[in-house]
Design a protein around this nucleic acid. Structure first.
Lengths: 187, 187
DNA sequence: GCCGTAATGTGATCTGGATCACATCAAAAT
DNA sequence: ATTTTGATGTGATCCAGATCACATTACGGC
């Protein structure tokens, strides 16, 4: 149980059995079916989520009720409306299952307790946050320097598995293109 | 000396005099003139920089030698080619002064020592990293949802001071538009 | 096995923003 | 004071990608 979490954390900081028991006790398992919401725009955000299995989309809906995909989340990823979670405000985005999904949930209170109770976990989260920032910066650079086709090719190179599991229309909503344009540049 | 740094850190974690003395001992002050490089593409990245005064641009130059502005850095900001710094690889971006600038430099070794030696500093960097990620995510959302004019207006709202200090052509390079288009939509 | 809905492809047309080309004005540099 | 360099504005033209419209195929639900 929670074995995937342990492996995930130990890629960054090794843990003793007791330490992992302590860590593990702060998480609760939840299962969701395709189309269910883990976070709903306008509602408070109780948890940060570690994805054990399945696939999620983090969606921002604009004033014209167009859906934009801020992020996907697959196995081993952490996802939430992190701003709303971290500042305990209402969600501006929704986190929705694209497949049946199992997550480990961590409340902000438990996140704090983990950081305070075990310095290794603070180190772990720092490492995650730094690489999360770098990933976002990489996406910004991709946007600044490349056209749609190039950005699509970069995405395929970076996450080949994702393309197989997600409809093209959602890939388009992630890249910030119309699905028609994306459809036309595949060959 | 380093008073600005102390105030900056204490917005997040309070420090005793001794603790700050410890922190402070890991930084070195450097001064640069307009047009000088703190980080040069292709070179190793020795330091992360806390900006005491002045203004910098973080620039990515693409294959067609077009310059894209990944970020600006003003007083109280931290800036570097963070990926190259963190992974000790060669810089893919350059960090250049737009004004005469004073920074406090922190080597990766000292960054690690700070985190190990004083848990409060690890907390501080975690907080910075989380908000850094959220800032980048916000920019991505702005890009997904808004056209050039709206993104420009959002930038003005978020950093009104910046617009006064930076030529429009660089604002354009940050927004990912041509300077001609930016020039046309001001009124 | 049938039906409604989602995913995908493709044509025709439109448009926001890029590009090219100059002109003007401000500010360094000598 | 004069030259050089950088910042900005603006017209004319072009094009990547959006939008609209419709056809085809795949698929989950009953």
């Amino acid at each position: 149980m929670h074995q995937k979490l342990r492996e995930h954390i130990e890629k960054i900081v090794p843990l003793t059995d007791d330490e992992f028991k302590f860590v593990s006790s702060h998480f609760t398992t939840k299962k969701f079916r395709k189309h269910q919401f883990l976070v709903q725009e306008g509602e408070p955000v109780k948890y940060h989520h570690f994805v054990v299995s399945g696939l999620l989309k983090l969606v921002y809906t604009d004033d014209n009720s167009r859906e934009h995909i801020v992020s996907f989340a697959m196995e081993d990823w952490w996802e939430s409306d992190f701003y709303a979670y971290y500042t305990q405000t209402k969600a501006t985005m929704s986190l929705v299952c694209l497949e049946d999904t199992e997550v480990l949930c961590l409340s902000l209170e438990d996140y704090r307790k983990l950081c305070d109770g075990l310095q290794k976990m603070e180190r772990f989260f720092l490492e995650k946050a730094n690489f999360g920032f770098l990933g976002a910066q990489r996406r910004i650079i991709s946007w600044l320097t490349s056209n749609v086709k190039e950005r699509y090719e970069q995405l395929i190179r970076q996450y080949p598995a994702l393309i197989q599991r997600v409809p093209k229309s959602l890939i388009a909503a992630y890249l910030g293109v119309s699905r028609e344009t994306l459809s036309r540049l595949s060959p």
